[in-house]
Computed example of a mutant assay.
Amino acid sequence: MYFNPYHYYPFGPPTPAYPTYTVNYPVSRTYPSVDTKIFEGSIKSFRLLMEQGSILLDRLGNVSFARKIMSAAQQGKNAEVDQLIKTIGLKVPVVTHFTPTGVNFTLTTQVTQQQPIHCCTLTVAMQWGH
């Protein structure tokens, strides 16, 4: 290499001012056709959960029933709360979780031959204290 006496770096081929980039064009992908059978089943199941949730809310709207639920919950009587909820006669399982300030009712779909997995969950969360 040749060194210029006035400069302390070697001369060579010019370097580009900007680095070169390769352009990656998006690859066109093919997707399988859409199958709505599972989604349609979930919609039907969720409608049932909504109906059952409405029945639950109607029953909780009864002041004497609400008082029984809240009193049992305040005393920590989980089994009594569950028994009171079962007296409503809902067609879906309900799990109740409560704290001093609120209550959650979780309604889930049941596993059937047509629906081998739990597709849907409806959680009703309400405040009942400060």
Rank of each mutant, 00 (worst) to 15 (best):
C120S: 10
Q115Y: 15
Q127F: 07
A79P: 04
P100M: 03
S71L: 09
H97Y: 04
Q110Y: 03
L107P: 00
T30A: 12
V103R: 05
P26W: 07
P16S: 07
S54C: 07
T123P: 11
T30Y: 11
H118N: 13
F3H: 13
K37L: 01
N62K: 13
S28M: 13
H118P: 08
I69G: 14
Q52K: 09
F46Q: 11
P116S: 02
T30R: 15
T22P: 07
I55T: 09
A73I: 02
V34R: 06
G61W: 01
A79V: 12
A72Y: 14
H97W: 03
T109L: 03
P10C: 01
Y2A: 03
P26Y: 04
E80C: 05
C119V: 07
Q127G: 12
R59Y: 09
F11I: 01
T36V: 10
R59K: 13
K68S: 14
L49M: 09
F46G: 02
L48Y: 08
S33F: 08
Q52M: 06
V111R: 04
C119H: 14
T123G: 09
K86V: 07
F98A: 08
E40F: 04
S33P: 10
H7S: 05
N78F: 05
T101R: 07
T106E: 05
F98K: 10
G61C: 10
I69H: 07
G41M: 06
S54Y: 14
G61A: 08
D82N: 10
M50C: 05
